[in-house]
Design a protein around this nucleic acid. Structure first.
Lengths: 166, 166
DNA sequence: CATAAAAATTTTATGCTTGAAATATATCGT
DNA sequence: ACGATATATTTCAAGCATAAAATTTTTATG
């Protein structure tokens, strides 16, 4: 639609040739990556020093906090979009720490449900509050009024082949 | 949108109460993370199937491609913002594969410089071309005219405490 | 019912990542 | 020259991550 006529000197915000657009996208990706890695690094450090835990553990707890009745291992790895084998290890350690329990599933001895213990729910709530505050600080360079817009653009990226449940 | 009660005068598109802004930032962060992870996963898969290599290896090669005379291990880990120990392992494997060489530094027997071999440079060029094409495809949901703007916002995030050399 | 196919999970092998400890070398102050 | 400190790198232990193979149990089919 808005392509052909980069003709005008004004070039009112429109168009770029393909090669330039490709380079621009590459630079954008590098910045996206840089910003994300930066925030992740800060969060990891905060989780480590503040709660002696990790981001992946927090992610597992967050998923289970939302699912009061617990989730099966396969549901968990699907929600978190990580491999099955990976979840096994993280859950093992969380169980050892008394944060999670494995509950056998009736009528299917292959599966187990995983659920937060009461201690786990408590710990999660404390961490979630800090987490939100950390993000608030880390992203405060962003114009809040632009958040929705930015958000929409990112949605476009994530949706590529990722059937978008949130 | 800016919350119904944007009060009145002055505050044109501004404002949201703090709690709402905080939640909005949290949601934004989750999308940022989701978009980044999605692109990363696709790239990893492409590198694996297309070149039997990994993103971290590509990153090392990219850094060294730009530095024709090579980099010391510490410079490499600083540029890539990863730990020293991490770089050691990745470089070890790249050396085994004939992609990198370690060169002793004159007058300082503690340090070594790492450089791409000719084979390494060749391989990198092929991979870089594909990489750019992959990114172009993955980010094509993004309005190219918004790239600069989006980019600026991300810059804000990355700059927090990250003295911004690129 | 038997057995093949499917499903849920774990195990294995490999590699990335960190932070901390260890090693080796260089530099500086006295 | 000596010893303390700083610098460059590697090693180590633990955890995260994937893909692929293996295990166990369920379900479907003949």
């Amino acid at each position: 639609m808005s392509d052909k006529l980069a003709a005008q000197p004004g070039m009112a915000g429109t168009s770029m040739n393909d090669a330039a657009a490709s380079k621009a996208r590459l630079r954008l990706w590098l910045k996206l990556l840089k910003a994300t890695k930066h925030v992740e690094a800060e969060l990891r450090e905060n989780f480590r020093t503040g709660f002696d835990t990790t981001l992946p553990r927090f992610d597992v707890m967050a998923a289970l906090y939302r699912a009061e009745q617990g989730l099966k291992m396969s549901e968990l790895s699907s929600v978190l979009r990580v491999s099955n084998g990976n979840v096994t290890g993280i859950v093992d350690r969380l169980v050892d720490d008394g944060i999670l329990v494995r509950i056998p599933v009736d009528n299917d001895r292959r599966a187990t449900t995983v659920r937060l213990t009461n201690a786990g729910r408590e710990q999660f709530e404390a961490m979630a509050a800090s987490h939100e505050a950390w993000i608030d600080t880390l992203l405060d360079g962003i114009d809040v009024n632009e958040v929705q817009h930015l958000s929409d653009q990112l949605e476009c990226i994530a949706r590529k082949s990722t059937k978008g449940e949130d």
